[in-house]
C-alpha cells in the first residue's frame, strides 16, 4: 500500500510522536475534552464475544473490545508434569502472548509476563480447583490486536473460554480498567489514553457473587476516590456481563 501524503520517510518519528503525546497530555489535563472515538467518559467500547474460536482446544473464546482483539484457548485438564509436587487441587497455567503485528511498531507488545501473572491471579479465585486434583489446565491467550485495555479483555475472554471448556467455576469473571487524568476518570481506555494516564485501576469481579477476584491500582489515589470507584465499577461490570 503506497501512501501518497508522506514524501519523505524518516525511520524515527519520535519527535513527531513526542509532540503528539505532549499535546494529548495537555488536552487530558483539561476538564472537558472529547475522546477520540466520541465516547462518553463512562462508556465502554462496543464488545463482541464468541465462544468456540479454536477447534482443537477444549474450550476457546474470541473477544473484541473496540480495536482490541483477543483469542484464548483452554486445554486440559491434563496430568501435571512428573516433576511437580503432588497437589490435591488443580493447577492453572496461564500464558499471555502478543502477536508480532499487534502493536503499531512490530514486535513491541512486551509485558506479557506481567499479564500472565495477573491473568492467573484473576482466574484462580473463580475456578473450583478442587474439581480436578493432580491435573493442570492450560490457558493460552493471544493478543491479535492491541488497542488498549488488553488485560481486561484477556481476563473476560479467558473466563468465557474456561466456561466453554466445561471447567467448573463459581462464576464468570469480567474485568474493566479505568484511567485517571487529573480529576477525570475514563472507563475502558484506549492505547493512546493509557500511554498518558496519571493512574489506573483494574477490577475483575464475579458479578453474581459480587466478589472481587483481582484489583490493581497505580498512581496516587485518595481513599474516598477508591471507595466511590469500586462501588461504581462493580455495578458497571455486572451490567457488562448481562449484555453478554
Amino acid at each position: 500500500m503506497a501512501t501518497s501524503s508522506t514524501t519523505t520517510y524518516s525511520p524515527s518519528q519520535s519527535l513527531e510522536k513526542r509532540q503528539q503525546q505532549q499535546q494529548r497530555r495537555r488536552l487530558f489535563r483539561e476538564i472537558d475534552w472529547k475522546r477520540s472515538d466520541g465516547r462518553e467518559f463512562h462508556q465502554c467500547r462496543p464488545a463482541f464475544l464468541r465462544t468456540g474460536a479454536a477447534s482443537a482446544a477444549a474450550g476457546s473464546a474470541y473477544v473484541e473490545f473496540g480495536t482490541t482483539k483477543v483469542i484464548v484457548s483452554v486445554f486440559g485438564p491434563r496430568e501435571s508434569k512428573k516433576a511437580m509436587m503432588y497437589s490435591d487441587i488443580g493447577r492453572l497455567n496461564c500464558n499471555v502472548s502478543y502477536t508480532t503485528f499487534s502493536a503499531p511498531i512490530r514486535g513491541q507488545g512486551s509485558d506479557h509476563k506481567e499479564y500472565s501473572l495477573l491473568l492467573h491471579k484473576a482466574l484462580e479465585g473463580a475456578i473450583i480447583l478442587e474439581t480436578f486434583p493432580k491435573t493442570t489446565v492450560d490457558v493460552f491467550a493471544l493478543i491479535l490486536e492491541s488497542g488498549g485495555s488488553d488485560l481486561p479483555a484477556i481476563i473476560s475472554c479467558a473466563s468465557l473460554a474456561l466456561a466453554d471448556a466445561g471447567i467448573m467455576m463459581y462464576d464468570l469473571v469480567s474485568a474493566v480498567s479505568v484511567s485517571c487524568f487529573g480529576a477525570n476518570l475514563v472507563i475502558d481506555p484506549m492505547a493512546e489514553e493509557e500511554a498518558c494516564q496519571d493512574g489506573s485501576l483494574m477490577i475483575t469481579c464475579m458479578p453474581t457473587r459480587h466478589e472481587i477476584t483481582q484489583l490493581t491500582l497505580t498512581g496516587e489515589w485518595s481513599t474516598a476516590k477508591i471507595n466511590e470507584n469500586i462501588d461504581n465499577y462493580t455495578v458497571t461490570l455486572s451490567l457488562l456481563l448481562y449484555y453478554r
Binding site: K121, G125, E211, I212, T216, E220, S222, T223, I230
Partner: peptide, 30 residues
C-alpha cells in the same frame, strides 16, 4: 505514602473478596 494517599495496590491471588471487605482492608492498611 506520607500524606495518607494510596499509591498502588495489588491483590495477591487467592479467593474473591467482597468489595466492602477490600475497602475495609484499605482503611486498616492506611
Amino acid at each position: 505514602n506520607r500524606r495518607g494517599q494510596i499509591c498502588g495496590m495489588t491483590k495477591r491471588g487467592g479467593a474473591g473478596l467482597d468489595p466492602s471487605v477490600i475497602l475495609d482492608m484499605i482503611s486498616v492498611a492506611k
